[in-house]
Simulated assay, not measured.
Amino acid sequence: MAPQAGAGGMSEQEQKYAKIIQSGMESCVVKSIMAGGIGFALGGAFGLFVSSMSYDTPLTPQGQAIANLPVREQIRRGFKDMGSRSYSSAKNFALVGAVFSGTECCIEGLRAKSDLTNSVAAGCITGGILARNAGPQAALLGCGGFAAFSAAIDAYMRMPGDS
């Protein structure tokens, strides 16, 4: 006997799982985790690219010039440096993505609207949080800078398409 098909040709069990997945995707926690994960991946790729282009450590910790080391050791140290820079960049991108996404989702839930104000407020809060350790002036500058960047990106994303 075939299962009963409900809405969209899905069985009751499939509909139940679809509702669970949809409610999870609407959760601020899940959105933050996903943004952090994607930010980690993009930050790692960006960090790898940038670190592969620059090599600004001409001396070893012992003061010996890297150019005087054997080629194998130069390559090993270069890859180790690229890895640590990539990981650092990945962590930073993950933090920015998770904080911004979570903050914007919470503000959107509180205001019960999806508009430019949510992005600007989330940008301000995120920028302030990220710069808080450098003092109040830096936190204020981070708030304004990240809010302006968020407003510009969101305004661009909300522009009508060419269709």
Rank of each mutant, 00 (worst) to 15 (best):
L116N: 07
A90Q: 02
Q4K: 13
R132E: 09
A138W: 02
G37K: 04
R132N: 13
G144K: 04
E26I: 07
Q137V: 09
C28Y: 05
S32L: 07
N133M: 11
T117I: 04
G127C: 08
G43Q: 10
Q74W: 10
G97F: 06
F40H: 03
Q74R: 15
S51T: 01
Q62K: 15
A18F: 15
G127H: 04
G83E: 09
G8L: 11
P70A: 03
L140A: 14
A35T: 06
G47P: 05
S119Y: 00
S86I: 02
G135E: 07
G97E: 06
S88H: 02
S54D: 07
L48D: 06
Q74P: 05
Q4T: 14
A90E: 02
R85V: 12
V120R: 02
A45I: 15
P70R: 05
S27R: 00
C124H: 06
R72T: 03
V99I: 15
R76W: 08
I107Y: 01
Q74V: 07
C124R: 01
G37L: 04
S11W: 01
G145A: 12
M82Y: 04
M82W: 05
R72I: 06
F146S: 15
G6T: 13
E104V: 08
A41G: 01
S54M: 02
A90H: 09
G102P: 12
A7R: 13
F146G: 10
G6A: 15
F40R: 07
L141M: 06
M25F: 10
C124I: 10
R111E: 04
V50M: 09
G123R: 11
R132M: 14
G39K: 08
A45F: 11
S52G: 08
E14H: 03
G44D: 10
M82D: 08
E26F: 11
A138I: 08
S32D: 09
F79E: 11
P58S: 01
S27N: 15
C124N: 03
